[in-house]
Structure formats: C-alpha cells, structure tokens
Design a protein around this nucleic acid. Structure first.
Lengths: 198, 198
DNA sequence: ATAGCACTTGAACATCTGTTCAAGTTTTTT
DNA sequence: AAAAAACTTGAACAGATGTTCAAGTGCTAT
C-alpha cells in the first residue's frame, strides 16, 4: 500500500483493515505509522545494498571496458527492479521510488541513512570508469540513471497508455533491458564538449 | 507550495494563510482545492506545450542528423526547466514533476488531458529520427528522458549532498546541459542488439 | 439613490487523521 | 498453579482536513 499510494495517502486504518487487525496494533508494535514504514526499509534495504555491492565488484573485475560500463549500469538497475529476488513482486522497488520522490522524505532521512553509502560507492565506480570526468559530470550521470529507473517504478499506467501497450511498466525485466541499453550508450558516448566548463 | 510539498501535503489553510486571505476564498473562486490546483495547470501548461511544439518543428527542419537528435531531446527538456521563460523561477516545472510522480495523480487526469497530446508528438518525432526502432523502443527512450528530467525537478537537496555541492538541482541550466548530453548520446548510440526480440 | 450582484469574512460542519487508553486475553515464566 | 509479562481489542481523544453557511461589505448598473 505504501508503494501504491505513498506514505501520506496510506492511512493507518487502511493498513489495519487490509490486514484484518485493529489499528492500535500498529502503534503497539512499531510505535508509530512511520515506525512501521521504517521497519519495511530496515528489513529490505540490506538485500538491495548487498546486490549492488556484488554487482560493482563484478564490474571492477571485468577487463573489457565496454562490458564494464554496462555492468555498472546494471548494478544500479537490476536490484531495484527486483529481478534477482525470487519472492519479490517488485513492491519494495515501488516503495523505494515513492520515498525518493516524496516531498516529505527529507524529514524522515531514510535515504540518507540507508542508501547514501551505496550511492557513494556507485559514484566511485563511475568515476573509476571515466577518470577524466569531473565530479559534477559523474554525479549528473548517476542522477540521470536514477531518474530513468524511477519513472518506471512510479508509473501508474501512463507508459502503457502512451505506447498503446507496447511498453509496460508491469514487465520490469523488459523495461530494465531497454533503459540499461540507452544509459550504457549515453555514458560511453557522452559528448563532453557540451558540458565542458560549466 | 504545491511544487514543494505536493498536492496532498499542501493544505487549503496553508495556502490561505500564506496569501493572507480567509480559506473560504479558495472554494468560492475555484470550487475546491483541486479546482485551484487545476487552474495552475490550465494557466501554465499551454506555454510548455507551445515551446515543445516549436522545439520539435525546429528539430524537423534540421538537416544534420546528429544535431537533430539533440534538438528533439532539448525540445523536451528546455521548456520543463523553464529556461526560456523569463519571469519563471522553475516552480511550475516542480509542480509538473510532482504531479507526474504523485500516486493520486491518475484520478485527477491532468496529465492525460493536458500533456498526453504533446507527449505523442514527442514520440512521433523520436520515431521519425529512428525509423528502424520498434514502437516499444521509442517509448522506452521517451520514458528514460522523462525520468532523467524528473529526478532533477523533484530533488530536495540529495544531489547537492551526494556531490558535495559540485552538482546542484537549483542550477537548472547546468543540469539540463549535462542530462541532455547523456541522453542525446544514449539515443544516438543505443545498442539495439540488447533489446532485440523483447 | 437604490436595487442587484459579486465578493469577503469568520465561524461552524462533518469527516478523517495518528495516537492513546483502560480493559481484556493469551502466553511465558517462576 | 500462580504471577508476570506480552499482546490484543474497541472505544475514545485531540487535532487537522476540505467544505459550507449566514452575515456582512463593496461595487455597479439602472
């Protein structure tokens, strides 16, 4: 429900009714609604982080430069889409995207605590791939990747509507392949002449 | 306020207090809170749409193929960042990104009414640039561009934090240049071998 | 001038929000 | 078996939400 409706629009009573229990249980077991919300992240985010770390190690050990860039991109994308997770239906990926895009998320600090460390690892890996890039260029590249990934996770049906069903955010594997192809090419062939000096 | 906090988190009373008027005025003049919200889009979105249309016409008249792809990308990005609008501080771009990412936006249908038509024009322009691409590929490319753009508009300071201030979402012009460079390269050099047959 | 209309105002409304409470029930420990 | 702790429950709480209402004010056309 947090993934579908976001933190604010998901009320304690909806959660309780859906679970078939009294509302008071949420506050007894998790202290508050935000406590329950955090518990979800504390349970699931280590798995995402570990998958990213492994993906980056895999990329570092790749000698072929072209393959290596592709592996870095996939180290970011694959765990988010829950492709490696068996029992995962992608719900946590959706929650993640919502939290990242939620205006009130900064106050909760969940991303700062749980995802900034691995984000810095991603930035280091990118910088290692492109030693001549400036810090700003590396960061903008990372954010571009992040955004492309996010819009798929947050989609409410607009992608299918605009594409007449030929593209579907409910099929994360296909989405991941297409996005990874564009982003990999974007990183490899980026025209630095345009961004120089800014 | 809608741009900073989103539709739900922006209360009628906060708006009224900020404007120094009684709450009832909102309902008298706009019928409802959503009426005021829609009025913002009805006022501002035609300008965005017109800028996109002009940008696409400019791209179509460009003979050089490389330049042409770049112009299509910029036709999408530049109006959103409010670079051409003089009195615009980018607030409407932020509202747009919020609405696109808001889980409850589908019920309002603002994007369906006001932005799907120009989105289809963008898709046509992309398809014209890459005649050998499938419909799905064109759509995923479009969504990739949209997402990369969105994450900058929605940023609450995380970009500056991760980059130690070397990248800043408050400087939309620089952001637009970097993102456009990556996306343009991504479209031009996309490895279709990866996406074939899906 | 005066009637009519548009607009403004502060208070009230019903509903929903997250949380707390006291009273129960179940489980665990001694 | 008795005592203690952990858990469950439905009702209640204070506060906030969008909206409505009746009364008042200001402007405009006749």
């Amino acid at each position: 429900m947090f993934g579908r409706f976001g933190f604010d629009a998901t009320t304690s009573r909806k959660i309780a009714t859906d679970a078939g229990v009294p509302v008071a249980l949420i506050n007894y077991h998790f202290g508050s609604k935000e406590g329950l919300y955090r518990a979800i992240f504390e349970k699931r985010s280590p798995a995402i982080r570990d998958q990213r770390v492994v993906g980056l190690q895999l990329a570092r050990s790749e000698a072929d430069w072209d393959k290596r860039v592709e592996l870095v991109v996939k180290a970011l994308i694959v765990p988010m889409f829950g492709l490696r997770n068996d029992g995962n239906d992608g719900a946590f990926g959706r929650i993640l995207a919502r939290e990242l895009s939620d205006p009130s998320s900064e106050g909760r600090g969940i991303f700062r605590e749980m995802f900034d460390p691995v984000a810095e690892m991603m930035l280091d890996a990118l910088a290692e791939c492109f030693p001549d890039w400036t810090r700003a260029e590396v960061n903008w590249a990372y954010q571009t990747m992040l955004g492309a990934m996010m819009i798929v996770m947050m989609d409410n049906g607009r992608i299918a509507r605009l594409s007449d069903g030929t593209a579907d955010s409910e099929d994360p594997e296909t989405a991941a392949i297409h996005i990874a192809a564009i982003l990999t090419a974007g990183l490899k062939h980026r025209d630095r002449g345009q961004t120089r000096g800014s």
